[in-house]
Design a protein around this nucleic acid. Structure first.
Lengths: 167, 167
DNA sequence: ACTGCTTGTTTGCACAAGCATCTTACCGGT
DNA sequence: ACCGGTAAGATGCTTGTGCAAACAAGCAGT
């Protein structure tokens, strides 16, 4: 029997190893998106969100997806996605078509221009991912990492919270 | 000799294992800040940036730091930090004092209220980190992960890029 | 067919954070 | 003592994104 039965495990401070890992991860989690974003933006004029949208469309059947699905893949809100798709549409990389099956729905289609643009950006982004991330994962067991991170990534978000106005 | 001497390694597509790891990591990197932020905001009315500011101050000698240093620790811009500190100051969690040594400088000091607030928030955030992240890292060699992520986190950002106005 | 509920998407508004620019203060050379 | 250069912070403006509410179309029950 434990001597401190009432103390939930989560209140134990992190072990030194855990603490070190968490500090590194916390920082990496801030740095990775920033670096990749800056890199891709500078070299290809696309941010990572836009890239991911094009990417997911290119992998989808008919090179097209409903907004809802696309939002899930890219892990952003529908409202966010609306704006992203607007930007891409303005550049002619993507087209919006009312869904035949459901008059409310929009189907977003990757245009030939969009595909070209993606094909041009792809190696650049790949190189960036390699250089900035993958190349550093030498000592790490990728399979174990993948399982772990997949679990983490599948966490549900609670209901949204807005900050109180002042005080 | 390799048969494709001109092809830089970075253009090789990712191996299946690398690809899986990268997809998981890419998603985790989006999800982790969102989840922790939402959690802490809901339960303690602080976002992670604010928490990190308080945290770093509490660990610093005199519970105080120059803006510049603080910005580095928290990994945000000075301009960003100015606003964060304003918010915290408005809540009385932090105070700004002109630096004695350097008339341009500000020293940000954690107030007793700020310390109390942090002490209250700390276990909540810790639990959240455990539940949402650490607990999932079971199969992973923490030491190897730490080295890898520390490397990643230390990448330099290139000069900033602003997106072209239109077209 | 009419009414009300549900679902997919867009829009109005707010907020956090970044870049560029400005001010103020320090510092090194003359 | 002055002058140019540089560093610390703050401020104006912009951008991306989120939530909440609006809107529109489908659907189910009567």
């Amino acid at each position: 029997m434990a001597r401190r039965p009432a103390l939930p495990a989560s209140l134990e401070p992190l072990s030194p190893a855990e603490d070190a890992a968490w500090r590194a991860l916390a920082r990496a989690v801030l740095v990775i998106p920033r670096v990749l974003d800056a890199d891709l933006l500078q070299k290809e004029g696309l941010n990572v969100t836009e890239y991911n949208v094009l990417m997911n469309l290119s992998e989808a059947p008919e090179r097209s997806l409903r907004m809802r699905e696309l939002a899930n893949y890219v892990s952003i809100t529908m409202s966010g996605l609306t704006r992203v798709v607007e930007r891409l549409e303005r550049q002619g990389l993507v087209e919006r078509v009312r869904a035949a099956a459901d008059g409310r729905g929009q189907v977003t289609v990757l245009t030939p221009d969009g595909l070209k643009r993606l094909q041009k950006a792809w190696p650049v982004h790949l190189a960036s991912v390699r250089r900035n991330v993958i190349d550093h994962l030498q000592g790490v067991d990728l399979e174990a990492l993948t399982t772990a991170l997949t679990e983490v990534a599948s966490i549900e978000l609670g209901p949204p919270v807005r900050r109180a106005k002042n005080t």
